[in-house]
């Protein structure tokens, strides 16, 4: 398999330097990298799993809205970014590994090269304490 474009490589290098959880996917949503803070959320280590197909990693999260109603995949920022190649932002809740609901703010954006080629997407999120915002 050919090497990733430098835009993807540099995205990973940046993610590796951040304290916020970051997920990087290819153009169809396969998870090609997640950083150490994201490992805590995912409950898996990138060192152990390597890349993960979209149908494997997408079921780990169970996103819900403020009424605890499940959010359909098409309403999630990363899925919308992969579909429309545009940035999105959303506040929602995910179930932690301990079974608690955690409020998060998630921003996703497409990686588009200098040649206007869509290379993948990045999702970055922040856990929000309930009394914030």
């Amino acid at each position: 398999m050919p090497a990733y474009g430098i835009e993807i490589i540099l995205s990973r290098q940046l993610a590796d330097s951040l304290t916020m959880p970051v997920f990087i996917t290819d153009t169809v949503g396969n998870l090609i990298f997640y950083n150490t803070p994201a490992e805590e959320t995912l409950g898996q280590r990138f060192e152990d799993t390597g890349e993960m197909p979209v149908d494997v990693w997408s079921v780990i999260f169970k996103p819900v809205d403020e009424f605890a109603k499940p959010i359909v995949p098409g309403d999630l920022p990363l899925v919308k970014t992969l579909t429309n190649r545009l940035p999105y932002h959303k506040t929602f809740w995910i179930k932690s590994l301990q079974g608690q609901l955690e409020k998060i703010e998630l921003t996703s954006y497409p990686i588009i090269s200098k040649e206007n080629e869509f290379l993948g997407a990045v999702a970055i999120f922040w856990k929000i304490k309930e009394n914030e915002n």
Partner: peptide, 17 residues
Amino acid sequence: LGRNGMIRNPKWISGFD
């Protein structure tokens, strides 16, 4: 370039191909 230097996996090396 990066926090831990080069990633030693050909897919993640700039200009590898």
